[in-house]
Amino acid sequence: MQRVNMIMAESPGLITICLLGYLLSAECTVFLDHENANKILNRPKRYNSGKLEEFVQGNLERECMEEKCSFEEAREVFENTERTTEFWKQYVDGDQCESNPCLNGGSCKDDINSYECWCPFGFEGKNCELDVTCNIKNGRCEQFCKNSADNKVVCSCTEGYRLAENQKSCEPAVPFPCGRVSVSQTSKLTRAETVFPDVDYVNSTEAETILDNITQSTQSFNDFTRVVGGEDAKPGQFPWQVVLNGKVDAFCGGSIVNEKWIVTAAHCVETGVKITVVAGEHNIEETEHTEQKRNVIRIIPHHNYNAAINKYNHDIALLELDEPLVLNSYVTPICIADKEYTNIFLKFGSGYVSGWGRVFHKGRSALVLQYLRVPLVDRATCLRSTKFTIYNNMFCAGFHEGGRDSCQGDSGGPHVTEVEGTSFLTGIISWGEECAMKGKYGIYTKVSRYVNWIKEKTKLT
């Protein structure tokens, strides 16, 4: 034993070699072989497995989906700052455009905790909710729209109204504003409101030439003092309507412009014939205590009207009353817009006519005020429907199939267009061939041609 100890002390290297040989010859039971080890760690190889990531292109799944990435790591994937920024906006807080917040056709661009709407022409605001041009839906104005110097929408209202708090709607500024039905039992019968379409306001006024200088022999019209197929109006439903009495009662109609003036057809009036105007009328054979009678003290036909040349060209006249009318729910003026808007309103496509005229061709006159909704007829169809001249200051309205029309005794009465609950004068009943005849239409004086003249002559002093 002493000898062994001496050998170990003198030859430590020998001992180490012996131990190493023993270990190498022993069977290893701690580690699995290569094949079995792979069965336990069965993990798919990654895209760049075996390579240094710093030297390969980034992978979106590896960089940002398996674990949260930084902007720089995302930049490695896209290799483009702009594309990385677009991805980053949604990656950080989701897609803010998912709810489609942009209105009126706006395009949404996502941002971090926010979004941006790219608005089409005519709109602005956070969600493109603000109209900035009158060309689109009248700028959301209830009545009139004008573009300011910086191309912003400025709404306005006709006389007797003021802008509401929203700067879009119009509200009454006087007790009985024009064009409004205020009798409670008839307010439910107000005709369907007309909503502004998209309009090209630059070209809204037709490029028409008034044929002022045409000389033409007097034409022989049949029954051209021209509501057939209409309905009984309720008291106060058309408070701007008046009836004219002269040699015979209810020979023509008219509309209240203001307390002192009536507008009617020029062919209705004769110099030297006494005319009485009755406002607030409903049943011409009954006294309903809503009527107001006034005498006409002055007749002003349009300066281009000449019955000797043509009885229905420039067929418009103004009547001055001896005493002002007292405005109330049964006696209310009709609204008159400017030339541009009167023309736009007419193009809405349908209007209402009213009167006490004959209820059928050569038949009896109506006792109760009649009204009828009539569609506008395109000019080409209008011209083809008659052998008589249709001037540019006239328009056609009615039904091709016949059966409904204005008729004798309705002449001078109103053709009105309702705009968001307020009625505007767009025409004056003038003439036609018979009444409600198939293929024939009622012919009306186009008020847009005469609004400046009306307003100039009827100013209240």
Rank of each mutant, 00 (worst) to 15 (best):
R75H: 15
Y201Q: 13
T461N: 15
L376W: 05
E10Y: 05
V92A: 15
E285A: 08
E193G: 12
D200I: 12
A9R: 15
T225D: 14
N258M: 02
N100K: 06
K438I: 06
R226T: 12
V263R: 00
E72Y: 15
R191W: 07
K260E: 03
L24W: 09
G351V: 01
Y352Q: 03
T209C: 06
A337V: 03
A37Y: 03
N343P: 02
S354P: 05
E116C: 04
R140T: 03
K109P: 01
G398H: 03
F348G: 13
E193A: 12
A26K: 02
N138P: 03
C396M: 02
I214M: 08
D315A: 02
S70P: 05
C28N: 03
V451W: 03
S204M: 14
S423Y: 15
K51T: 07
F55W: 08
T85R: 13
K438M: 08
E61S: 15
P414A: 09
Y371H: 13
S255C: 08
L346W: 11
Q143L: 01
A436Y: 08
P44D: 14
V243S: 12
V269G: 04
G402Y: 13
Y441A: 07
L321S: 01
D315W: 01
F55S: 15
A37Q: 05
S187L: 11
C119W: 00
N113L: 06
C128F: 00
F395G: 02
E420H: 07
K168A: 08
V154I: 11
Q57N: 10
A164K: 10
S11G: 12
S430G: 13
E35S: 10
Q2S: 07
T287W: 11
V154R: 09
A366C: 05
E193I: 12
I297K: 11
S354F: 07
G229F: 14
F31G: 15
L425C: 00
R384E: 10
Y444A: 02
H34D: 10
V248W: 08
I316M: 03
C119K: 01
K438C: 07
K455A: 06
R384M: 10
D322L: 02
L32S: 15
C28F: 02
L460A: 08
G413M: 11
E10C: 11
S107T: 11
P44K: 04
Y352P: 02
T218M: 07
S365P: 13
H400M: 13
N36E: 11
L319H: 01
C178I: 01
N213P: 14
D338S: 10
C128M: 00
F123K: 07
I136P: 04
G94Y: 06
G363K: 13
C119E: 00
T276I: 09
E129I: 01
N245M: 06
C97Y: 00
S350P: 12
F123Y: 12
I284R: 13
L325Y: 03
W118N: 15
F224M: 13
L383M: 08
V30W: 14
I284Y: 08
S49D: 15
G403Y: 13
N151L: 11
C97H: 01
I17N: 02
N304P: 02
G50D: 14
G50Q: 15
Q241P: 00
T458N: 00
R83V: 13
F224G: 12
G357E: 13
C28D: 03
S354T: 14
N310E: 06
V181I: 11
L346N: 03
H267G: 04
Y352K: 02
G412M: 10
L60I: 15
S217I: 12
K247I: 10
Y201K: 13
Y161F: 09
V248Q: 11
C252K: 00
S385F: 14
L321H: 00
M8K: 14
T209S: 13
G402A: 14
M437Y: 09
D111C: 04
N151A: 08
V416R: 02
N100E: 08
C252T: 01
C69N: 04
L460D: 14
F176P: 00
T209K: 09
P101F: 02
T381G: 04
N328D: 09
I17C: 07
D131E: 15
N147Y: 11
M394H: 11
E124K: 04
F71A: 06
Y444I: 06
A397D: 02
Q2M: 12
G351C: 03
V227P: 10
N222E: 10
W240L: 00
K455L: 09
F176N: 08
V183L: 09
L325N: 00
D93Q: 05
Q57G: 14
L327A: 04
G427F: 00
C170L: 02
F144S: 00
Q96R: 08
K455Y: 05
K247E: 09
D95I: 04
V331I: 09
I210D: 10
L163E: 02
R140K: 08
Y371F: 12
L372R: 14
G230I: 14
P177K: 01
Y22F: 15
I262K: 02
N328M: 02
D93E: 05
C97F: 00
F251E: 07
N113H: 07
T342C: 03
P120T: 08
Q185G: 13
S406D: 14
E73I: 07
F348T: 15
T194N: 06
L14C: 07
Y22I: 14
T81W: 04
N166S: 04
K440G: 13
K146N: 08
C335P: 02
W431F: 14
L376H: 06
F399L: 11
V374Q: 05
N147P: 09
V374W: 04
V92K: 15
I7K: 14
I112Y: 07
F71T: 15
D110P: 09
